[in-house]
């Protein structure tokens, strides 16, 4: 009885400290990454999705609130900012390729961003979703902090946008490869660019793990589409009555 009590005391102490949640997050990710590599980089075995489900099931099983978990795991979350800044390095390394494709980058950026926004609006209307949900969905293809900012601006619900945006990243990373293989797109710059444009950071991470050139163009699209979409959507709302 005493032993059990002691274990419980240790658990109470540990679950209040970041160390436990950091170890759990990294451990879950190593499992996801191992399975991803074992599957020979099969897009359906997405390491992010696997580790998210592992951690979430542990939280649900132990009855720990997300807020308590995040309070510990926020140090990992924090690194998203520096990682974004660090993307300047691979972009710089491929600047000659980017200069060579400036025109196609610019046209694909504008056309692709408009396609993402209008197809979302079209399918959401088709599904007869509430207008508030539609507004929350429209900026979903860009990185979460930008998407949430746009959502707030146009009358969406930012927290709903965060959920939809992350789901978009996982869907893009898991199914985008199939679309590109069916269409027989071989150009690595085009493949990567499409991933970054349509499914932001999670899509970029997937592209980076497959091919360096694709990864760099994904990172480029991630940054550019974030800027483009935050200009396009408010502009569209001024021009058209959605």
């Amino acid at each position: 009885m005493l032993e059990k009590n002691k274990l419980y005391t240790i658990w109470v102490y540990l679950q209040a400290e970041p160390l436990f949640w950091l170890t759990l997050t990294i451990g879950a990710f190593l499992v996801g990454d191992y399975l991803y590599k074992k599957s020979k980089l099969n897009p359906l075995v997405n390491p992010v999705a696997i580790s998210i489900l592992l951690v979430a099931s542990i939280l649900i099983a132990t009855g720990i609130s997300y807020e308590r978990y995040f309070n510990g795991a926020k140090f990992i979350h924090f690194m998203l900012g520096p990682a974004t800044v660090a993307l300047a390095i691979p972009i710089y390394k491929q600047i000659h390729l980017i200069k060579k494709e400036t025109t196609s980058i610019f046209i694909s950026l504008i056309a692709g961003s408009l396609f993402a926004i209008f197809s979302t609006y079209f399918f959401a209307k088709l599904m007869k979703l509430d207008i508030e949900i539609i507004y929350s969905m429209m900026p979903r293809s860009v990185t979460a902090p930008i998407a949430m900012g746009i959502s707030e601006l146009i009358g969406g619900v930012p927290s709903l946008t965060a959920i939809i945006t992350i789901l978009t990243g996982i869907v893009g990373a898991s199914f985008g490869t199939f679309a590109l293989d069916i269409l027989r797109v071989k150009d690595m710059t085009a493949r990567g660019f499409a991933f970054g444009l349509a499914s932001h950071g999670i899509g970029t991470a997937r592209a980076m793990s497959r091919n360096e050139t694709a990864g760099i163009f994904a990172a480029l699209a991630l940054g550019l589409s974030g800027v483009a979409t935050s200009i396009i959507i408010p502009l569209l709302f001024k021009l058209i009555n959605f």
Binding site: T25, F29, P47, V48, S51, V55, A73, H77, I166
Partner: peptide, 11 residues
């Protein structure tokens, strides 16, 4: 990079 999306993804 993928690891960094786990905490927000759990949310």
């Amino acid at each position: 990079l993928s690891l960094l999306f786990v905490p927000i993804g759990v949310g």
